[in-house]
Design a protein around this nucleic acid. Sequence first.
DNA 1: CAACCATCGGCAAACGTTTGCCCCAGCGGC
DNA 2: GCCGCTGGGGCAAACGTTTGCCGATGGTTG
Lengths: 334, 334
Amino acid sequence: MTRPPTLRDVAAASGVAISTASRALTKPGRVNERTAVRVREAARQLGYAPSATGRALSSGRTRMVALLVPDVTNPYFFGIVRGTAARLRADGYVHVLVDAEESVEAEERALRALRPTVDGAVLAASRLDDDRLTAWSHEFPMVTVNRPVPDQSGVLVDTAGGTGQALAHLASLGHRRVAYAAGPRASWSDRRRRAVLRTAAKRLGVDVVFLGPFVPRREDGAAAADACLHADVTAVLAFDDLLAFGILDRLAERGIDVPGAMSVVGCDDVFGADLVRPGLTTIAAPLERAGHAAADLLLGRLDPTHPGGTVTVELPTHLVVRGSTGTAPLRVVR
Amino acid sequence: MTRPPTLRDVAAASGVAISTASRALTKPGRVNERTAVRVREAARQLGYAPSATGRALSSGRTRMVALLVPDVTNPYFFGIVRGTAARLRADGYVHVLVDAEESVEAEERALRALRPTVDGAVLAASRLDDDRLTAWSHEFPMVTVNRPVPDQSGVLVDTAGGTGQALAHLASLGHRRVAYAAGPRASWSDRRRRAVLRTAAKRLGVDVVFLGPFVPRREDGAAAADACLHADVTAVLAFDDLLAFGILDRLAERGIDVPGAMSVVGCDDVFGADLVRPGLTTIAAPLERAGHAAADLLLGRLDPTHPGGTVTVELPTHLVVRGSTGTAPLRVVR
DNA sequence: CAACCATCGGCAAACGTTTGCCCCAGCGGC
DNA sequence: GCCGCTGGGGCAAACGTTTGCCGATGGTTG
């Protein structure tokens, strides 16, 4: 296990000064071509790769970007990880993945530790409160996903719009009483969807009953399903696909036919939504594009030649209709 | 957006030299407690966090570890990512995620670029050939997953053993002619499973027909399913769950009852295996544990006080029986 | 022939941290 | 009163890279 070769080794091997070696490799035309060839050949032969650490120290930029997610376990974030990874790779940035463990403290600890080390961060579904998020956004180039911060660039996925679409879809199938199985109170998306549902419900002449909040995990779908049955609805919009999977599990367990007796709509279209039977009708969120867009915004801010200014990218969603939604059953009046 | 505070700022604020500030924060007892308190207070007030870059340069260690996967998209790697992330986080290491794009060149490029920058790497299912892998293993502390390298620590998941179990399971259900829908020729796991299947088939009195190789993607399950039907088998062991999902899709499309007319067994038990209907019987690989173990091995090697020596951890698998396997149909002799 | 310029290479500082070495003050023992 | 020891603090080098500045060389122009 030998120490990696440094610029000093390359310089020695080609008989020039370190500064010349550096320029030969990074500043085309700055040194005589014959010298440059010699240096490049030596570098190749030694297997030289510049130390990102050394570079970072002298340039003040590390060419690393962190992605903070509350929970790497959640398939929701897989798409975001993919998107940011692809975008960062395209510009040769290193991708640091941080699991904030759903905890405000862990998230702040990670930000503090990473601030001197990475050039910027993408915060997906941050658990930080508004004040702290705003404070951090002044200290550190960052872009949020699904979490608007004043005067800060961000990516929003318009699941609220999709929710309206989904309700219209259910209304057109004859559903008149629909549940919304809500997510965490702290969720920005959840708040927006509630608002949209209230107005859409009025417009469409549908009763929407709000159930929850539920923790968006498959296990918690049981409680949500039971609440739906008790609330006497014929369809349910779940906060996300995981919750919807759990609802499907529980309905199957209780022998409730989907979509015959109950229609189920998820949100996000994560991996697996087309694996369940019946396939899950869901509001497809372009998560990979969201991650890509977030990284793109961040890279733009990091580029000093870039115009600047804050941008908010809002990505549209669309409803993917699969087998879990169908015409409303005849209402049984008790 | 202010420059993060450095040790110099802390030293100035507390009226001591940089070296004293450094020691006050990192060498308990080395400086007078009264002085140390002053320094710590200044650090706290300024929001000081040590620069990993500066540390790395002086110590030669970056406290970063890279995880190279061929394709972040594949749910197989989600578990590994989770496991390594958790283990690295526990020791305060930073987790660098690299997608090698299923390409030997990209993988080597990443290794070359990362060598001076990270302390070590976990290579999951490397696409590198043996020679290059061996060469790299001499240059760079690394641990492989499912890819044995001579004189190098690694983690192996015994899916071959699980395959034997799965075949026995099928035999006990009366299957007498079973297909193996193979994965890529280059796969080490695939080669081992073939060997195990050959001997197990003899012992159990089962005919195993080898089909493929198939690309382990859901889309390629269609070809695998058609090949199975043509080969006149009553059960199929798929290289992995993704392929099995695709086989299930195609069988459903062609109206073949699972498990009535055909039993299907997957491998890995990825996210989603219990979402399909019928649930997929599969060889459960402890992927999160594998990632955890790999990171653990690597961290051990990086610790200078550690005994040393190379270790190979072999993790057992077990068969998870769900709905996709059942008793063999009566053979139709044509 | 002098003044000027372009080309090319080297010196040294800077980035932030750690750490070996040295210095100084204070104190106890003789 | 001198020696030696110890506790506590600073100086400076080192890590690998980039880059502003300078100097040397050789050629061109007036």
